[in-house]
Design a protein around this nucleic acid. Structure first.
Lengths: 205, 205
DNA sequence: CAGCTGCTGTGATTTCAGTCACAGTGTGAG
DNA sequence: CTCACACTGTGACTGAAATCACAGCAGCTG
């Protein structure tokens, strides 16, 4: 696929280098891409599909933080790459996903040589930092009903999909809540004509 | 004061540049250093004291994210400086605080010229990102009693102070909770011999 | 079609935290 | 000393969310 359109800001020399050095790889829906405590050996650029970045705790609870979509990069992999330390998060492919993997040894060189890469890295940090801030806002200040609405909107994504194919259980997991709570709140949303519920699918109105 | 000891990793040329260009400034306990939506014109290095970084919502609730201590820098100010955008957080001096303010125009040059500065910036990002992760963990997975214990430990800091001079109300504000809840939980901790309560002061055991 | 499994709906109960109301106590100002 | 005020302790109530228990239903398998 022609990935260059996804990163129009990259300068030609950088594109050349990536084309030469990076490895393209496919992950299938459900594949775990990165695991807590795992060593990172590459920086990941997303070309296609969607990656879910989440936190896991000892008791098996999980908590969605954000998604990576085409044209974005994993900030955690960059930070860890530069310092070659372990990651503290989980990454899982939500759909079949194409990524470019850039070996960490190249990071330093790219940062120094290519202004557009440097800008991209900073941009990525900033984006994820702000995303984390809004996550904190949500769980600190909002109730479950508001968080659920926010979740559905975000899950629909920029694409503006109207059909969200998830079971109530999956949503509950992402929000670190329980299935019954989500079912009840969704019912309330249906009564307010915000959504229409189907089996394994939620239709946004 | 001799701030160089706080940043031993800085190379001599960088120190020289900072000494020439940066402005030292004092904030007094309670001063608001940065406000949500405000434009950032400098990167901040902490020399002495402590700065509280927190999030505020519309209804007046606030929520502590982390502290900046001597030898640390404000990641948000760096990110915003590089992209010259507004901040999304509040920063307030907890004690009388000395900082070095480095004009944002110099950031680019420093990043390119001084490897040790570049490393420091990356290090700062990483540190704050992880701090945010642990904040998310806490509010997502932990109950108030555990969060309170975590808060007290963090507030004591690396210094290992045993006397925390805060009213229950201040703690409740930082945790976005209410005074009564904190009072009760502290009482329970006292019964478990974890702390000893005094007026405006909590003694860690 | 019968039976299984996974998804959904719903009531009852419990737990945690926030809120209200109020009382006691330490401290500082006058 | 006394008064005002901020800080602390506690009981009662409320509300949000988690948990338990169970029932109905869709879809698949054999």
């Amino acid at each position: 696929m022609n990935w260059k359109q996804l990163f129009p800001q990259f300068e030609p020399a950088l594109i050349e280098m990536i084309e030469k050095e990076a490895v393209q790889r496919t992950f299938y829906a459900g594949d775990v891409i990165m695991r807590t405590g795992q060593f990172i050996k590459s920086t990941v650029l997303v070309l296609e599909g969607r990656i879910k970045i989440y936190r896991e705790n000892q008791e098996g609870g999980e908590f969605l933080m954000y998604y990576l979509e085409p044209g974005e990069a994993c900030a955690v992999s960059m930070i860890c790459a530069i310092q070659s330390t372990t990651s503290e998060i989980m990454a899982q492919a939500e759909e079949n996903t194409e990524v470019l993997m850039i070996p960490i040894q190249l990071m330093d060189e790219m940062m120094n040589k290519y202004k557009s890469w440097y800008q991209f890295v900073i941009q990525t940090y900033r984006g994820r930092f702000e995303e984390l801030l809004s996550v904190v806002d949500n769980i600190a200040f909002r109730n479950m009903d508001e968080r659920l609405e926010f979740y559905l909107k975000r899950h629909a994504g920029d694409s503006g999909k109207k059909h969200i194919e998830l079971s109530h259980q999956q949503i509950a997991d992402d929000l670190n809540s329980s299935r019954e709570v989500i079912s009840r709140l969704l019912k309330k949303m249906e009564q307010r004509n915000l959504v229409k519920l189907h089996r394994n699918m939620i239709e946004l109105l």
